[in-house]
Design a protein around this nucleic acid. Structure first.
Lengths: 207, 207
DNA sequence: TTGTATTTATGAACACCGTTCATTTTATTT
DNA sequence: AAATAAAATGAACGGTGTTCATAAATACAA
């Protein structure tokens, strides 16, 4: 019976439609301000239909979450390959992380800022698994740096948390508009300079 | 007429009641999940009454915002006084900033993470003003460090943004539960270590 | 092809939300 | 005590997420 196969395909296709509509609306107007009815309208179905494919609104967000992490991992890998020097690799990793954050603000939010749906116990496992893998990628690069003599005597995990916190801080301050206290034309440069300054200080640490 | 004086006092008192109830509810269950009706219930008035004292729900948040910034400034000042050495002063400033963030998670959110009400144009002036003053406090301490020979050849604003980003990153990663990828008993220590590592690296930069 | 069973979609209904406003209650002034 | 002013109410409006009996569409068996 090819019928159930087709049904399966149709189900997947429908989920795709919902997710695409949801992503675009979330990006446009945010999660809270997007209603199930809005999503249903875009895909030209009734609101109730959405619930045949997703348990609730949070589960839609969660599905996008998974996609977002996969995209971030790709972005990070792109920052790693082709950089021979370990420290340059670390610098590039951070830059690509920031680039992803700035180019996908709502998805970055979803992964590292949003708080609402993450509280739901069930979601945790998969989400944190993804998060862990991204963090491990950072740790690997830091390990390479240490092998090359950087951060002598320091702890890999500690250094990694520090680096992560810095780029995450830069990203969120900007995404959440807290750089508004600086004149508009300076904002991006200030963030770039801060990151460059950080990596320079980090590099000279050798000690 | 002492009557209008009393009326004024009563109005202030009523606003206080509303703000206290709102703060406690926001802290408990967050902004979005707290309804005007919830607040009204706590202070034992009808929902409509709230609108005689605050234009809308956002304005309540905004009033709390002003209070929160004032408290943060106090916390930061407390970190500065009594530290003779400029660099120790910087370290202490960061620690007090983090302490405030961890002890007042919802208020910290309000100031540096929340995005919804800040978009409203009118609010900006006062809010940014408060934010700027807090940032200037950091810049002053950094300036003292530079006078003492630290961060040679670096730009004060750049260094300050970098420091701010790091502590903000540490704060938000933890407040938004992204440190869940680490075992519970290690989380706080990891953050402390990362901050200590950062300041140590910063200190040795001199060069 | 027809009739039945199954899947899929609907939209009304529920309990909530922020906000407004005519009406009622309370307090002040004359 | 009557008239006026201020404060509080609660019903109503148009929205929300979600559920569920009903209706429509599809798949399978006779």
């Amino acid at each position: 019976m090819g019928v159930i196969d087709r049904k399966e395909r149709e189900k997947v296709e429908m989920k795709r439609q919902i997710l695409d509509a949801a992503r675009s609306l979330f990006l446009e107007q945010g999660f809270e301000k997007t209603s199930i009815r809005n999503i249903a309208e875009v895909i030209e179905y009734s609101a109730g239909t959405i619930y045949l494919y997703f348990k609730d609104k949070n589960e839609i967000l969660f599905a996008l979450h998974v996609e977002a992490f996969s995209a971030l991992m790709q972005a990070m890998q792109a920052g790693i390959v082709g950089e021979a020097d370990p420290f340059e690799r670390l610098i590039s990793l951070g830059k690509h992380y920031l680039k992803y954050a700035f180019e996908n603000p709502e998805l970055y939010d979803l992964m590292f800022v949003m708080t609402a749906p993450i509280e739901t116990l069930e979601y945790r496992k998969e989400i944190w698994c993804d998060g862990e893998r991204a963090f491990e990628t950072l740790e690997f690069v830091v390990a390479d740096c240490m092998k090359a003599g950087y951060f002598e005597g320091a702890d890999n995990e500690t250094i990694s948390v520090m680096v992560w916190s810095l780029v995450h801080g830069l990203a969120t301050l900007h995404l959440r508009r807290r750089t508004m206290i600086f004149p508009e034309e300076k904002r991006i440069k200030l963030l770039e300079d801060a990151y460059a300054q950080f990596t320079e200080i980090l590099k000279t640490y050798k000690k």
